[in-house]
């Protein structure tokens, strides 16, 4: 598949793959592109072009794998994007899903209200899981990445940082990086296969659509952490070690 380039027209990108819509809004890019190219839009909006292209392409195509572009952008843009994405999930997606579960709860009768309550509890646990996962990344992983970059720029590397690169490199995080989609898939299955029918088809349909979308989005998010973030951090780790001659 051909990857998008800085000369691709922004409107055509979205027309080709509407799933990219939530991504551009995470960068603060608004609709009404006219015929502007990705490059022009990025300049207008003050968005880091190389990084934006990496993200668009890795969300657009599962097979996309960045090779030469890892040096083109700074880690801090990436960290701020990932942090934005986390809050998009927690502040926009999760409440949406909760809203529809609540509506199903109201429509459910007798035996089924117990079932919906079980689903509600299941999703609640999931929410706690992802909150925990995200806050771990924000507290431990992201500051580490920023510290690596700072060390390279400032010619100043603390002994603690060097120690951490050797003892707890990003590889450890990579190995323990757990998948966040599995529970969502279970939730879909429980609703589609096992929840006795409710009298609120619209809400069920909306809920499922939200779940499908969130699952897709989180899958892409994980892939992007694995294919863009981790390789980039490994490269930074290597550079810091080389630079400080350890």
């Amino acid at each position: 598949m051909v990857a998008f380039t800085k000369n691709s027209k922004m409107a055509e990108v979205i027309l080709r793959d509407y799933q990219l819509l939530p991504i551009i809004s995470r960068f603060g890019i608004k609709l009404g592109f006219g015929n502007k190219s990705i490059e022009e839009i990025c300049t207008d909006r003050n968005v880091d072009l190389p990084f934006f292209l990496e993200i668009l392409n890795s969300y657009h195509s599962i097979d996309y794998f960045p090779k030469n572009h890892l040096c083109d952008f700074n880690a801090d843009v990436m960290v701020s994007y990932l942090t934005n994405t986390h809050s998009y999930y927690l502040n926009s997606k999760v409440p949406h899903i909760e809203l529809f579960i609540d509506r199903m709860d109201q429509a459910a009768q007798f035996e089924n209200s117990r079932n919906v309550a079980l689903l509600k509890q299941f999703f609640n646990e999931y929410k706690i899981d992802i909150e925990h996962h995200f806050s771990e990344e924000e507290k431990n992983v992201f500051p580490y990445i920023l510290a690596l970059e700072k060390a390279l720029k400032s010619n100043n590397c603390s002994p603690q940082l060097l120690k951490k690169i050797k003892r707890e490199p990003i590889e450890i995080y990579e190995r323990n990086h757990e998948s966040l989609e599995v529970k969502l898939a279970d939730m879909k299955n429980l609703i589609i296969r096992f929840l006795p029918p409710l009298n609120c088809e619209d809400d069920c349909e909306h809920l499922l659509t939200e779940l499908f979308q969130l699952e897709c989005d989180i899958e892409d998010h994980t892939r992007m952490e694995e294919k863009v973030l981790i390789p980039k951090v490994k490269m930074l780790e290597r550079k810091v070690l080389e630079y400080y001659g350890v």
Partner: peptide, 17 residues
């Protein structure tokens, strides 16, 4: 058979039934 992978998902199924 169920399409459910996680333990908490299986628990919900077992409770529902």
């Amino acid at each position: 058979k169920l399409g459910i992978k996680t333990i908490s998902g299986l628990t919900v199924y077992a409770l529902m039934n």
